[in-house]
Design a protein around this nucleic acid. Structure first.
Length: 386
DNA sequence: GCGGATCAC
DNA sequence: TATGGTGATCCGC
C-alpha cells in the first residue's frame, strides 16, 4: 500500500498539532483594541510635501544603488522600495530620484509619536513611520465625542497637497471658506476651515488620530484595528493609502479574515518561510491549520508554534510587538564593496570599523550615563591576519 | 558561544 | 557605473 508523506505525517503529528492548538487557544483574547499606524510612502511623501514639483511625477527616495521608497505614481511603473535605483530608472526613465534626508524624517516621526502617545503612553514605534498603539484603556475611558478644526486647501496653489479628500467627511459641524493669495507660489487659493467631530468607539478614535497626524504633518497614514498586533499590522495594509481597516474582536470575523490571508502578508513570514510553506501546499493562513501535520517537516518546534499562532489568528505573545523591550542590544557596522583579496585594504577597513564602533559605543555610553569608555586597539595586524 | 540564515524596515 | 545598512532572533554546530 502506497502512503503519501501527508498520510505518514498525519499519523505521526496530527494528534500533537491538535493538542498544541488547544493549548494556544487558551491565550485567545478579544478584550484588547490594538492599532497599527503606518505612514503612506513616508519618505516620498515628506519630499513631495516639501517640493511641490515632485507631486505629480514618478519619484523615489534613495540612490542609484537602492531606493527606500517610491511615490504612488512611480509604483505604477513597478518602481518599489528596495529596488536598485538604476533598475528603477530603466523601468521608468522619467523617475526622479531624491536623496535620503534622514533628519527630516526623524523630525516628522517625533511629531507622529507625540500625537499617538496621547492615546497610549506606552506605544512602541516599529520604525520612523509606524507605530503600535494599545488603545484599550483610552477607548474604555472616552465617553464623549471630540471636535477639531480642519484646514483644507482648494484653488490653484500647489504648495499644499489636497490632503483631505472631498468625500472624506467626518461629522462636519460648521464650515468657513476664505480666499487668499499664496505667498509661496502666488497662486490664489481657497482655504476651507471646518469644525469636525469624532465620536466614541475605537474606529472613530483612530480616524481622529489619523486626522490629527495629517493636520500636523501634512502627511497621510493608514491604520489597522484588531484584537492583537499581529492582526493589526496586517490590517493597516488592507486599505492603504490614507484609510483604515477594522477587524472586529469577534471569533468569526477573525477566522474569516485569516482563512484567505496569503501567508506572506504576515510580519515574520519572509521569502524563505513562504517558500517552505508553499512546498507543503500552504499558501493561505487557513491552510496552516488544515495542513498543520505537515509543519514539522519544514520547521523547528518554535517555528511550528509560531506558524500555528498565525493560523489561529493569535498574537505573537512573547517577543516583539506585544511587549517590546526597546533597549538596544548591539551596535554594528557593515559596508558593501567589490570583491577583493587585498588583505591590507581589508585590514585597514576592519580597523576603521573598529574605531568607528568604539566611537559610537563610547558616545552612547557617555550620553546615557556620563561615564567614559576607553578602548585600546592593539596588535590589530595579528588579530585580523586570518 | 559563535557564525550563518532569516526577517523587518 | 551601479543591488544597502542596522538590529534582532533562532538554529546548528
Amino acid at each position: 500500500k502506497v502512503q503519501t508523506l501527508s498520510d505518514i505525517t498525519k499519523m505521526k503529528y496530527e494528534k500533537e498539532m491538535v493538542q498544541l492548538c488547544g493549548l494556544l487557544e487558551k491565550e485567545r483574547n478579544y478584550d484588547r483594541d490594538c492599532v497599527h499606524v503606518d505612514m503612506d510612502a513616508f519618505y516620498a511623501a515628506v519630499e513631495m510635501r516639501d517640493f511641490p514639483q515632485l507631486r505629480n511625477i514618478p519619484m523615489a527616495v534613495g540612490g542609484y544603488s537602492m531606493l527606500s521608497t517610491s511615490n504612488y505614481v512611480a509604483r505604477q511603473f513597478g518602481v518599489r522600495a528596495g529596488m536598485p535605483g538604476f533598475i528603477a530608472s530603466r523601468l521608468c526613465p522619467q523617475l526622479e530620484i531624491v536623496p535620503l534626508n534622514f533628519d527630516k524624517y526623524t523630525k516628522e516621526s517625533r511629531v507622529l509619536s507625540s500625537i499617538l502617545s496621547q492615546y497610549d503612553p506606552n506605544l512602541s514605534m516599529g520604525s520612523l513611520d509606524e507605530a503600535y498603539i494599545d488603545l484599550t484603556q483610552y477607548a474604555a475611558i472616552r465617553s464623549s465625542s471630540v471636535r477639531h478644526k480642519r484646514i483644507r486647501y482648494g484653488g490653484d496653489c500647489v504648495c499644499r497637497l489636497p490632503l483631505v479628500k472631498d468625500n472624506d467627511h467626518p461629522g462636519v459641524v460648521q464650515s468657513i471658506e476664505r480666499e487668499e493669495v499664496c505667498t509661496k507660489c502666488s497662486h490664489s487659493r481657497k482655504i476651507i476651515e471646518d469644525e469636525v467631530e469624532f465620536g466614541i468607539g475605537r474606529a472613530e478614535i483612530v480616524r481622529e488620530m489619523r486626522f490629527r497626524v495629517e493636520q500636523a504633518t501634512g502627511l497621510t497614514c493608514s491604520a489597522g484595528i484588531a484584537p492583537n498586533f499581529m492582526l493589526a499590522k496586517v490590517c493597516s495594509d488592507q486599505k492603504k493609502p490614507n484609510d483604515q481597516f477594522e477587524l472586529e474582536n469577534d471569533p468569526q470575523a477573525v477566522n474569516d479574515f485569516i482563512k484567505e490571508l496569503p501567508t506572506r502578508k504576515v510580519s515574520g513570514i519572509g521569502r524563505v518561510a513562504e517558500a517552505h510553506l508553499s512546498a507543503l501546499g500552504i499558501t493561505k493562513c487557513g491552510d496552516i491549520i488544515t495542513l498543520a501535520h505537515l509543519l514539522p517537516c519544514a520547521f523547528s518546534s518554535l517555528g511550528v508554534e509560531s506558524m500555528l499562532r498565525i493560523g489561529l489568528g493569535l498574537g505573537s505573545n512573547m517577543h516583539s510587538r506585544d511587549s517590546k523591550d526597546s533597549s538596544r542590544k548591539s551596535i554594528s557596522l557593515e559596508r558593501t564593496f567589490s570583491p577583493t583579496s587585498d588583505s591590507r585594504f581589508l585590514t585597514q577597513m576592519l580597523y576603521e570599523f573598529c574605531e568607528q564602533l568604539i566611537e559610537q559605543a563610547s558616545s552612547k555610553i557617555k550620553s546615557a550615563s556620563g561615564l567614559s569608555l576607553k578602548v585600546k586597539l592593539s596588535n590589530f595586524e595579528t588579530l585580523t591576519r586570518t
